[in-house]
Amino acid sequence: MGRRRFLDVILGGGITALLVGIVYPVFRFIIPPEQPEADASRVVAAKTSELPPNSSKIFKFGKDPAILVHTKSGDYRAFAAICTHLDCTVQYRDDLEHIWCACHNGHYDLNGNNISGPPPSPLAQYEVTVRGEDIIVSKA
Protein backbone atom coordinates (compact mmCIF):
# COMPACT_ATOMS: atom_id res chain seq x y z
CA MET A 1 0.00 0.00 0.00
CA GLY A 2 2.98 2.33 0.70
CA ARG A 3 4.09 2.20 -2.90
CA ARG A 4 0.63 2.91 -4.15
CA ARG A 5 0.29 5.89 -1.84
CA PHE A 6 3.68 7.17 -3.00
CA LEU A 7 2.65 6.88 -6.63
CA ASP A 8 -0.58 8.74 -5.92
CA VAL A 9 1.35 11.58 -4.37
CA ILE A 10 3.75 11.74 -7.31
CA LEU A 11 0.86 11.61 -9.74
CA GLY A 12 -1.15 14.25 -7.92
CA GLY A 13 1.84 16.52 -7.54
CA GLY A 14 2.89 16.04 -11.14
CA ILE A 15 -0.53 16.78 -12.53
CA THR A 16 -0.85 19.84 -10.31
CA ALA A 17 2.54 21.11 -11.47
CA LEU A 18 1.60 20.44 -15.07
CA LEU A 19 -1.69 22.28 -14.72
CA VAL A 20 0.11 25.24 -13.16
CA GLY A 21 2.57 25.09 -16.06
CA ILE A 22 -0.34 25.32 -18.47
CA VAL A 23 -2.52 27.79 -16.62
CA TYR A 24 0.26 30.26 -15.82
CA PRO A 25 1.25 31.02 -19.44
CA VAL A 26 -2.41 31.18 -20.41
CA PHE A 27 -3.09 33.57 -17.56
CA ARG A 28 -0.18 35.79 -18.63
CA PHE A 29 -1.28 35.55 -22.24
CA ILE A 30 -4.76 36.90 -21.67
CA ILE A 31 -3.51 39.96 -19.76
CA PRO A 32 -2.98 42.55 -22.49
CA PRO A 33 0.56 43.98 -22.71
CA GLU A 34 1.08 47.41 -21.22
CA GLN A 35 1.91 49.13 -24.46
CA PRO A 36 -0.94 48.58 -26.87
CA GLU A 37 -0.25 47.14 -30.28
CA ALA A 38 1.84 49.49 -32.34
CA ASP A 39 -0.06 50.66 -35.37
CA ALA A 40 2.44 50.48 -38.17
CA SER A 41 0.70 53.05 -40.32
CA ARG A 42 0.02 55.77 -37.75
CA VAL A 43 1.94 57.17 -34.82
CA VAL A 44 1.89 60.17 -32.51
CA ALA A 45 5.24 61.60 -33.50
CA ALA A 46 5.41 64.55 -31.10
CA LYS A 47 3.48 67.05 -29.01
CA THR A 48 3.01 70.49 -30.50
CA SER A 49 4.67 72.03 -27.43
CA GLU A 50 7.97 70.22 -27.96
CA LEU A 51 8.46 71.39 -31.52
CA PRO A 52 8.84 75.15 -32.09
CA PRO A 53 9.02 76.43 -35.68
CA ASN A 54 12.30 75.73 -37.50
CA SER A 55 12.99 72.58 -35.52
CA SER A 56 12.61 68.88 -35.98
CA LYS A 57 12.32 65.54 -34.26
CA ILE A 58 13.45 62.07 -35.25
CA PHE A 59 10.87 59.49 -34.22
CA LYS A 60 10.38 55.77 -34.63
CA PHE A 61 7.82 54.92 -37.27
CA GLY A 62 7.26 51.20 -37.53
CA LYS A 63 10.78 49.83 -37.53
CA ASP A 64 12.47 52.80 -39.12
CA PRO A 65 13.40 56.33 -38.20
CA ALA A 66 11.30 59.16 -39.58
CA ILE A 67 11.72 62.90 -39.28
CA LEU A 68 9.08 65.45 -38.36
CA VAL A 69 9.89 69.03 -39.32
CA HIS A 70 8.12 72.12 -38.08
CA THR A 71 9.00 74.59 -40.82
CA LYS A 72 9.74 78.25 -40.28
CA SER A 73 6.51 79.08 -42.02
CA GLY A 74 4.60 76.92 -39.54
CA ASP A 75 3.83 73.74 -41.50
CA TYR A 76 4.42 70.27 -40.17
CA ARG A 77 6.07 67.86 -42.60
CA ALA A 78 7.15 64.29 -42.09
CA PHE A 79 9.46 62.11 -44.12
CA ALA A 80 11.24 58.80 -43.92
CA ALA A 81 14.50 59.76 -42.23
CA ILE A 82 16.56 57.28 -44.20
CA CYS A 83 18.83 58.86 -46.77
CA THR A 84 18.22 57.41 -50.21
CA HIS A 85 21.95 57.28 -50.82
CA LEU A 86 23.36 54.86 -48.24
CA ASP A 87 20.61 54.65 -45.59
CA CYS A 88 22.08 57.06 -43.05
CA THR A 89 19.64 58.87 -40.79
CA VAL A 90 19.03 62.39 -42.06
CA GLN A 91 18.61 65.50 -39.88
CA TYR A 92 17.06 68.93 -40.10
CA ARG A 93 19.49 71.84 -40.39
CA ASP A 94 17.90 74.94 -38.91
CA ASP A 95 20.60 77.13 -40.47
CA LEU A 96 19.91 75.81 -43.97
CA GLU A 97 16.20 75.34 -43.28
CA HIS A 98 16.19 72.01 -45.01
CA ILE A 99 17.01 68.36 -44.46
CA TRP A 100 20.60 67.23 -44.56
CA CYS A 101 22.47 63.95 -44.37
CA ALA A 102 25.73 64.15 -42.50
CA CYS A 103 27.27 61.05 -44.04
CA HIS A 104 27.88 62.44 -47.52
CA ASN A 105 26.48 65.92 -47.40
CA GLY A 106 23.21 65.12 -49.13
CA HIS A 107 20.55 67.79 -49.10
CA TYR A 108 16.77 67.51 -49.36
CA ASP A 109 14.27 70.32 -49.54
CA LEU A 110 11.18 70.48 -47.37
CA ASN A 111 9.21 68.48 -49.91
CA GLY A 112 11.72 65.68 -49.53
CA ASN A 113 13.27 66.30 -52.95
CA ASN A 114 16.96 65.53 -53.24
CA ILE A 115 18.45 68.89 -54.16
CA SER A 116 22.17 68.36 -53.87
CA GLY A 117 24.83 65.81 -53.09
CA PRO A 118 24.73 62.09 -53.75
CA PRO A 119 21.11 61.13 -52.89
CA PRO A 120 19.60 59.64 -56.04
CA SER A 121 15.94 60.04 -55.13
CA PRO A 122 13.58 61.94 -52.82
CA LEU A 123 12.61 60.98 -49.28
CA ALA A 124 9.20 59.34 -48.90
CA GLN A 125 6.74 61.82 -47.45
CA TYR A 126 4.11 61.02 -44.82
CA GLU A 127 0.89 62.72 -43.93
CA VAL A 128 0.75 64.88 -40.84
CA THR A 129 -2.38 65.79 -38.93
CA VAL A 130 -2.54 67.78 -35.73
CA ARG A 131 -5.19 66.69 -33.27
CA GLY A 132 -5.14 68.80 -30.12
CA GLU A 133 -1.65 68.50 -28.67
CA ASP A 134 -0.75 65.47 -30.75
CA ILE A 135 1.07 65.59 -34.05
CA ILE A 136 0.04 62.41 -35.82
CA VAL A 137 2.04 61.04 -38.72
CA SER A 138 0.47 58.46 -40.99
CA LYS A 139 1.41 56.62 -44.12
CA ALA A 140 -0.69 57.95 -46.98
Partner: peptide
Protein backbone atom coordinates in the same frame (compact mmCIF):
# COMPACT_ATOMS: atom_id res chain seq x y z
CA UNK B 1 2.50 41.66 -31.72
CA UNK B 2 1.42 38.28 -30.39
CA UNK B 3 4.91 36.88 -31.00
CA UNK B 4 6.87 39.73 -29.47
CA UNK B 5 4.75 41.75 -27.04
CA UNK B 6 2.16 39.41 -25.60
CA UNK B 7 3.53 37.28 -22.76
CA UNK B 8 3.88 33.67 -23.94
CA UNK B 9 2.39 34.74 -27.26
CA UNK B 10 5.31 33.13 -29.07
CA UNK B 11 4.49 29.87 -27.29
Amino acid sequence: FIMTDVKFGWL
